[in-house]
Design a protein around this nucleic acid. Structure first.
Length: 371
DNA sequence: GGTGATGATTTACG
DNA sequence: CGTAAATCATCACC
């Protein structure tokens, strides 16, 4: 019930207070303007603001699924990977160019109006010069005044446009305001990395960049993701078991498929997750828990542990058989929760970047068989 | 509309 | 500076 520090999203109207007495500016020189519509810079502002406002709603509506056809089309046009990112981007750019167009149109109009008005005044002066002597200096002065008025108006317009653009930008850039989930593929990649580095889920800067590139997200988003993931995983390991198993199995499957070595019939070779993970899970769902227990917690079922150990060993075996592939999959170790110590908190890595390594030979897998 | 999942931000620590 | 932890704000699903 305390007051909370509330500061961030408060601002909506960044400045924009705007257009003070423009109408006056316009009028005081003219009296009877030829154009009739030009004194409404406020109108334009309104228009611009409307656009920026719309952009928010549209952006939201866009992802509600309703009119996703357009979004999908845009995404498709943008091409596969960075699809949603660039869809958003194109939307942003559309708004931007819309604003710019309005600005240019209006600017042009004002210029034209300025010219027209100037000639108009000149004509008037010329007429008056019949009845009254009018010095050229006076004419010049008049013209100057007019030009100054118009240019100040144009400045105003410019400023308003700038503000509008800034608002637009801040809205589109404030990711928290319109957070969107990463796409399936990105999540998959991240999870894969996370679970295959579960003993030390701290990607180096390079790894982050790589992941970011693969997932079409930024490095800081990768950092955020890992931060969230670590904390949430640690907080409730049980909840993530299924997922962990799944990705472990998937990694294993990938490994086996890479090996093209079909001799072992008993490994969960169905590549595509669900089925294999399901059956595997059923057999060892809480068995993994036991393995976990072995490492840190109250350990309750030795035989079960042994049982699962054999399973794991099989997997490890299969994997280590395929030990040649070093590329992007790197050292894909099987799901091994032992990095986490009882207090919570991963045993940190000595140096964040030099960690790449449990490339132990097929024999020396860190088997925790404490017996 | 309620609710859990999830990405982002803030705060605090070493 | 990079993280952990708490928290916020939005999404996605019912």
């Amino acid at each position: 019930m305390d007051d909370q520090p509330r500061l961030m999203h408060s601002s909506h109207g960044v400045g924009m207070a705007g257009h003070p007495g423009l109408a006056q500016h316009m009028q005081d020189g003219t009296g009877g303007d030829a154009d009739g519509r030009k004194q409404d810079i406020g109108d334009i502002l309104q228009q611009i603001m409307t656009i920026t406002d719309q952009s928010l709603d549209e952006a939201q509506a866009r992802y509600k699924g309703g009119g996703s056809a357009a979004a999908a089309a845009a995404a498709a046009a943008a091409g596969g990977a960075g699809a949603d990112n660039s869809a958003e981007h194109s939307d942003y750019r559309a708004k931007l160019s819309q604003i710019r167009q309005i600005y240019h149109t209006e600017l042009e109009k004002y210029e034209q109006a300025c010219n027209e008005f100037t000639t108009h005044v000149m004509n008037l002066l010329r007429e008056q010069s019949r009845t009254r002597p009018i010095s050229p200096k006076e004419i010049e002065r008049m013209v100057n005044i007019i030009h100054r008025k118009f240019s100040s108006i144009q400045m105003q317009l410019k400023q308003s446009t700038c503000e509008a653009v800034m608002i637009l930008r801040s809205r589109f850039l404030d990711a928290r305001r319109k957070r969107r989930n990463f796409n399936k593929q990105a999540t998959e990649i991240l999870n894969e990395y996370f679970y295959s580095h579960l003993s030390n889920p701290y990607p180096s800067e390079e790894a982050k960049e790589e992941l970011a590139k693969k997932c079409s997200i930024t490095v800081s988003q990768v950092s955020n993701w890992f931060g969230n993931k670590r904390i949430r995983y640690k907080k409730n390991i049980g909840k993530f078991q299924e997922e962990a198993n799944m990705y472990a199995a998937k990694t294993a499957a990938t490994a086996t498929s890479v090996s093209t070595h079909g001799s072992q019939a008993n490994s969960p070779s169905t590549p595509n997750s669900a089925g294999s993970a399901g059956s595997f899970n059923m057999n060892s769902g809480d068995l993994f828990m036991s393995v976990q227990s072995l490492n840190g917690d109250s350990y309750q079922g030795a035989q079960v542990g042994a049982n699962v150990q054999s399973q794991v060993d099989t997997l490890r075996h299969v994997i280590s058989q395929t030990g040649g592939y070093s590329e992007s999959l790197a050292a894909s170790q099987i799901y091994s929760p032992q990095g986490i110590n009882a207090n919570g908190g991963w045993q940190d890595a000595p140096t964040p970047s030099s960690v790449t390594s449990p490339t132990e030979g097929p024999g020396s897998v860190h088997s925790d068989t404490s017996n």
